[in-house]
Nucleic acid binder design. Sequence first.
DNA 1: ATGAAAGCGCTAACAC
DNA 2: GTGTTAGCGCTTTCAT
Lengths: 342, 342
Amino acid sequence: MKRNKSSHEVTIKDVAKEAGVSYSTVSRVVNNKSYVNPDTRERVLQAMVRLGYQVNLHARSLAGGQSNVIGLLVVDLTTQYLGEIINGIDDVLAANRYELMLYTTHRRKAKESAYVHMMARGLADGLLISLPREPEAYLTSLRQKGFPYVIIDFRSEDPSDHFVTADNYQGGYDATKHLISLGHQRIGIVTGWMDMVSARDRLDGYRAALDDAGIPFESELLFEGDFSQPGGFRGGSYLLDLAEPPTAIFASNDISAMGVIEAVRAHGLQVPGDISVVGFDDIPTAALLNPKLTTMRQPLQEMGRSATELLLDLLKDPEDKSESIIFPTELIVRETTAPPHP
Amino acid sequence: MKRNKSSHEVTIKDVAKEAGVSYSTVSRVVNNKSYVNPDTRERVLQAMVRLGYQVNLHARSLAGGQSNVIGLLVVDLTTQYLGEIINGIDDVLAANRYELMLYTTHRRKAKESAYVHMMARGLADGLLISLPREPEAYLTSLRQKGFPYVIIDFRSEDPSDHFVTADNYQGGYDATKHLISLGHQRIGIVTGWMDMVSARDRLDGYRAALDDAGIPFESELLFEGDFSQPGGFRGGSYLLDLAEPPTAIFASNDISAMGVIEAVRAHGLQVPGDISVVGFDDIPTAALLNPKLTTMRQPLQEMGRSATELLLDLLKDPEDKSESIIFPTELIVRETTAPPHP
DNA sequence: ATGAAAGCGCTAACAC
DNA sequence: GTGTTAGCGCTTTCAT
């Protein structure tokens, strides 16, 4: 299964011959390192263009250089949430001439660990890890190797970890408080995957807001969802079927909020007339729904950008002491929340 | 900028020593090629596990093997459209132990060509190209090299090309016909990027349907959009501001349909009461809108899957004569279309 | 069935 | 400033 090398690929040696220099000089020019006589450089550059030279990243990587590839580990791509984050990542990577290698685990946990190892085995210079559930298993091995990584949307306890996340606790708090300040007293919550820190933080914020308002937490008003639209639908249905249903529901992300809203309609009720709904994320679609979704915005693109910058810093200097970043969230009041029905 | 190799990476040589064989034997075991004595194989396998061996893909690729990486060239990821396709791609890739390298060009045309060359330079074994505009430039060089690629959502004229697409012409035809059969006579269209074949095909289908119904095509009812939501909004606004506005609008994709619907509302009108709207794609969000979007479904996941299978076939046998595939589209009637206001 | 050895294209010492 | 050279980890003849 050999590559079709009919048309000989032009290598650094070809360029060297063409320019009449040794091939290490070509390497120097390509990498812009150590001084090269301007004339020589020019001749090499021209030879490169003439021959249409392109580095072979595999060779470069093997020879001890960097691969200029960043690995991104995500769950799946159908959520706009990640699309936004990736846009941010992408911006920074492109500006720094890095490539993106994408890994989607589709929640098959076993794969995550295998992937991480393969990437760390030279395929990538660094790793961006998004939305992992209990990533400790492979994080430990990464730490041991001193392999650079940044975690997105995860608050790590380990001081050597670098991460970028939104303030999910405060977001959950503010979303709930918004509902309370509208006059709601019975507020349901549809959570995300409870093995994800971000989901737990949002829940904690919800409870704290209730607490501060003197509203007792009732476990029957909590539905454990999974950040999906069907999960939101199930959660909404469950809450509305309660003997004493809530008048408002906090969904832990926009996608599940959409499911909740569907459930409200399926019960013949109106949003926000009968039931108020708040989401979380502010994905682009949120503003396009009818009614438009009230939600907590996380600066997704910026989070992707920051995480990538942090990682590139780490690559330049492993001892880099850049801080992990926790972005503030922002309440975006649109049309799905209103005072409770009198 | 040397990799932190504090903890010596275990190579095929280490495994060889551990198992007491030569390292070419280890290579044979790893690659499952030529016969190896079952006992020897077993010993090697155990040594591999014991040492936690992982191939170095760069070395493998350099040595003339394949890289087991597929490159995917896309415009950007915020559209659910691509998320769905990638899910399909991903399925097949995972099942065949391939990795995915992602390239987003963000419509910077210059980048596309550079990317393609780099990938073809050994980084990837094959290329999946989605949504290119006028890709002829780099396709030519790919063909010359005999580099395997499959194009998604593009009908190529070149008989040696392989592509997977939906029947955009028929889709455009059926969408328009649906509107006509509801009684609409003035039907506007918001197109996609006109330098994309799929957009042109949908437009052609629209015109053909009009033609077959004896409705003259009026150029003032055509707005050249760009597959984006703001583009749809602009298109909708333009059409509704016409002296004699249409009673129905065919948007060339769901995202722009969402923009059109926003524009309808901004004009104080109702969908579908005053204006009917049809989209194209059937992205997941389409079913979650209020009212739910009537649209032409393309089997996105399946398209991704098929394209990938086609490419892997090509990789196994460059002379593979697998056919390019054109998937049928399907009208999904939901709630945004109705007979015209009397 | 297995071992030895020649590269793949490049980077990074080390010379000069 | 530039050339020489030794690998990086692996696949693949070619021997045996």
